[in-house]
């Protein structure tokens, strides 16, 4: 019954997209689509564990109810996966050279933030801000590549476009708030609570885009 609350509505499109994304493996879509499918499945598993953790799961491990460690860990894993996806879809050689180095650097910062700076049980603001900025930049680069490409595709039928679109909107819109979240947590919890409905809407949008993306098939460029 807990899952019938409005804050968990996003789980419906997320679960559906996790089911539909299985066709990426069955139909042997290119590697980046399969990585994207992995990301969706990991997102679903993370959300389910994070929701269940404060209620029952934590007692199994004799741990605290705080589920921040799950989300903090998820930020790092998802960033790694997104970097791998963008590495495969972006074609510019300079980006292909810089991206692995930048990704490794950011992952190190993320691990340091998770283990030493903030620790797993506090919101990892540093790694969150850096990964958000990096993901927004990668989305912009992908959009730029789409516009500059010689061929044309029906972009509303391309799974990667829906993925990039959703994560771009989610990360860009939530960034100003998330930057201040640590500060709000310390100063006034009411301001933090203000973020929840915004996050709900953004989460629902993100998961709906995941679902839409897997309703289509990968497109191939039409030669000019």
């Amino acid at each position: 019954m807990r899952f019938l609350k409005h804050e968990y509505f996003y789980l419906v499109p997320l679960m559906l997209s996790a089911i539909f994304c299985l066709k990426a493996f069955r139909q042997k879509w290119p590697k980046h689509y399969r990585l994207y499918a992995c990301m969706v499945i990991i997102t679903l598993v993370t959300e389910l564990i994070a929701i269940e953790w404060p209620y029952e799961l934590h007692s199994l491990f004799n741990s605290s109810q705080n589920n921040f460690w799950i989300y903090n860990l998820f930020i790092i894993i998802r960033f790694g996966l997104l970097c791998a996806i963008f590495y495969l879809i972006l074609t510019q050689s300079i980006i292909k050279k810089i991206l692995p180095l930048a990704a490794i650097g950011i992952l190190i910062i993320g691990i340091l933030d998770y283990t030493i700076i903030h620790g797993p049980l506090q919101y990892n603001t540093y790694s969150m801000v850096i990964t958000h900025v990096c993901i927004i930049t990668l989305c912009f680069l992908y959009f730029q590549q789409l516009l500059q490409e010689k061929g044309a595709i029906l972009i509303h039928k391309e799974p990667m476009v829906w993925m990039a679109l959703s994560i771009f909107v989610y990360h860009a819109v939530s960034l100003p708030f998330l930057m201040m979240l640590g500060f709000f947590n310390i100063n006034d919890i009411r301001l933090t609570l203000l973020f929840f409905p915004i996050n709900e809407i953004l989460n629902f949008f993100l998961c709906s885009c995941y679902l839409i993306s897997f309703l289509w098939k990968p497109q191939y460029l039409q030669p000019r």
Partner: peptide, 10 residues
């Protein structure tokens, strides 16, 4: 301010 900035970014 937060809501307006969020809407602006959106």
């Amino acid at each position: 301010t937060i809501i307006i900035s969020t809407l602006l970014v959106l």
